[in-house]
Amino acid sequence: MPIPEDVTGEEIDKDVRQELQSLPKTLAEDVAKNLVMVARLIDEDPERAYAYSRIALRLASRVAAVREAAGFAAYATQKYGEALAEFRAARRMTGTVELWPLMADCERGLGRPEKALDMAGAPEVQKLDKAGQVEMRLVAAGARRDMGQLDAAIVTLQSSELASNSVQPWTARLRYAYADALLAAGREGEAREWFAKAVEADRDGSTDASDRLAELDGVEFTDAFVEDEEQDQVQDPAQDGADRDEQGAQDEDKD
């Protein structure tokens, strides 16, 4: 696949660049450029990001950063079996536990929520940083919901991180998940309160909490362009009658 001219490979993280030093220089540059494309496209065009990740994987499958990038790209395209395999490979190579929550979520994606819950209770979770532990809590709550255990999902999300007034990178998503679980359980009033709290914390628009809140408040959004098109299609009855009279006169002239 073509690489844009503005991509040099130098854009990648310095730790990844250091990993690639084990490869021949030209090969390392090619792999780096493909990894840059994965990072650039994974949100806006995950299928293309996945394609670039496969090229990087073909070129350097023994580099942990490449396996991790391939895992993220597969995860973004809901290829959970592939993603899990790549995350496991990266973990074996690095020995770290950072990918543990993502691996558990892949188990959910594969229809194995019980396995995800087992992973949520594993010793590896205690080795995660705070962000990783919150992510694991979100995955565990999702697994509970997969199994139809709404009350258990709500309890799983109740934590010091949820109760805290300080805003962290995970706060909006945690509050959103809690609000969504409350709503699924029919606790609409509490859900509205927590969607509002999610909006307060969602500084970069990472969730659609504002839309969910508006929906609960009965606010409907209309597309102005659609309205204009519909208006154009509704003809004035008086004009419609005039058009028919004009057509009738033309028919009489022909006779």
Rank of each mutant, 00 (worst) to 15 (best):
D118A: 06
F87V: 06
E68K: 14
L59I: 06
I55T: 15
A83V: 06
F87T: 08
Q78W: 11
R40T: 14
R112W: 01
V97Y: 11
A116D: 03
E82F: 01
A64R: 08
D43A: 15
R58K: 14
R54D: 12
R40G: 03
A122R: 00
M103H: 05
R58W: 03
V66Y: 07
L57S: 12
A56Q: 04
E68Y: 14
A104I: 02
A49C: 05
P123C: 03
G111I: 02
P46K: 09
E44C: 06
R91D: 03
S53P: 10
A90K: 09
E86I: 00
G109L: 08
R54W: 09
A73P: 06
D45Y: 05
V125N: 05
R62L: 01
L57K: 12
F87M: 07
Y75C: 03
L84G: 00
E107G: 00
L99H: 06
P46D: 11
R54H: 09
G71R: 04
E82R: 02
Y52Q: 07
E82I: 11
A85H: 09
D45I: 03
G109N: 07
A89C: 01
L102F: 15
V97R: 10
R54G: 07
L110I: 04
G121P: 00
G121L: 00
L59C: 02
K79Q: 15
R112D: 05
G111N: 05
G111C: 05
P101G: 09
L57I: 03
P123S: 05
A60V: 07
R112G: 00
M103K: 06
A83F: 10
Q126G: 10
I55W: 01
T77D: 07
E86N: 14
V97N: 13
A122H: 11
A64W: 10
E44I: 13
A73W: 04
D45C: 04
L41E: 14
G81I: 04
D43G: 09
D43E: 15
A69Q: 13
P46I: 09
L117R: 01
I42C: 08
L102K: 13
R112M: 04
R92C: 00
G121I: 00
M119H: 00
A64F: 07
L117Y: 01
G95Q: 02
A74S: 15
V66R: 05
A85F: 10
A76F: 06
L110R: 12
S61R: 13
E98K: 14
P113Q: 02
G121E: 02
L57W: 11
A60G: 10
G111T: 08
Y52L: 01
A51G: 05
A51E: 14
A70S: 15
V125Q: 04
Y52C: 03
V66F: 11
A76D: 11
M93S: 08
L117T: 01
A116Y: 05
S61Y: 13
K79C: 02
L84P: 00
V63A: 01
V66H: 06
L41A: 07
D118T: 05
